Computed example of a mutant assay.
Amino acid sequence: MKGFATGSGSPTIVTPFVFASCLVRQQPVLATRLFQSEPGSLFERGLIQTIIVQGRECVGHASRVTVEPSLVRVYIMDAFTAGSSPLEA
């Protein structure tokens, strides 16, 4: 996954790590719970869905975001353990 557009017209390309970092910064409690959850569990799936739905600010003006479910935990955990470095403007 190279990145995805976050707007229409002249989109901004956001890498999965930048997207995940934003999600972690916006929702540190949920990211912590995800980090502690059992991989593949229903609880994990619910947390990932909630994190993405509540992370609308992280996708800009995109009307649709497609995320590969098998990679979401990997990207969020990477951002979580990296300290969630801030987005660059």
Rank of each mutant, 00 (worst) to 15 (best):
M1A: 10
M1P: 06
K2I: 12
G3Q: 08
G3C: 08
F4D: 03
F4H: 06
F4G: 04
A5D: 11
A5V: 08
T6G: 14
T6D: 14
G7P: 04
G7L: 03
S8F: 14
G9A: 06
S10T: 08
P11G: 04
T12G: 11
T12R: 14
T12N: 14
I13W: 12
V14R: 08
V14P: 05
V14S: 06
T15G: 13
T15M: 11
T15A: 11
P16Q: 12
P16L: 11
F17V: 09
F17C: 08
V18M: 05
V18S: 04
F19D: 13
F19H: 13
A20S: 02
S21A: 09
S21H: 04
C22S: 09
C22W: 09
C22G: 11
Q26F: 07
Q27V: 00
Q27H: 02
Q27D: 00
P28N: 00
P28T: 00
V29I: 12
V29F: 08
L30K: 09
L30I: 04
A31K: 02
A31N: 04
T32V: 12
T32L: 14
R33Y: 11
R33K: 15
R33T: 12
Q36W: 01
E38T: 10
E38R: 10
E38P: 03
E38S: 08
P39H: 01
P39V: 00
G40D: 06
G40E: 07
G40V: 05
G40H: 07
S41L: 06
S41Y: 04
S41E: 08
L42H: 07
L42A: 13
L42M: 07
L42C: 08
F43Q: 15
F43L: 14
E44R: 03
E44W: 05
G46L: 13
G46D: 14
L47I: 01
I48M: 12
I48L: 10
T50A: 05
I51S: 07
I51H: 05
I51N: 06
I51T: 06
I52A: 10
I52V: 14
I52C: 09
I52H: 08
V53E: 06
Q54S: 05
Q54V: 00
Q54D: 02
Q54A: 02
R56M: 09
E57W: 01
E57N: 01
V59F: 08
V59W: 06
G60V: 10
A62N: 13
S63W: 14
S63Y: 14
S63Q: 15
R64H: 10
V65N: 07
V65C: 07
V65S: 08
V65G: 07
T66C: 12
E68D: 07
P69G: 07
P69V: 10
S70A: 14
S70K: 13
S70M: 11
S70C: 11
S70Y: 10
L71Q: 11
L71N: 06
L71K: 10
V72E: 15
R73T: 04
R73E: 03
R73Q: 04
V74M: 12
V74R: 11
V74Q: 14
V74D: 13
Y75W: 15
Y75S: 04
I76V: 15
M77E: 15
M77C: 15
F80W: 06
F80I: 03
F80H: 02
T81Q: 05
A82S: 02
A82E: 00
G83F: 00
S84V: 00
S84Q: 02
S85T: 15
S85Y: 15
P86T: 07
L87S: 08
L87E: 07
A89P: 11
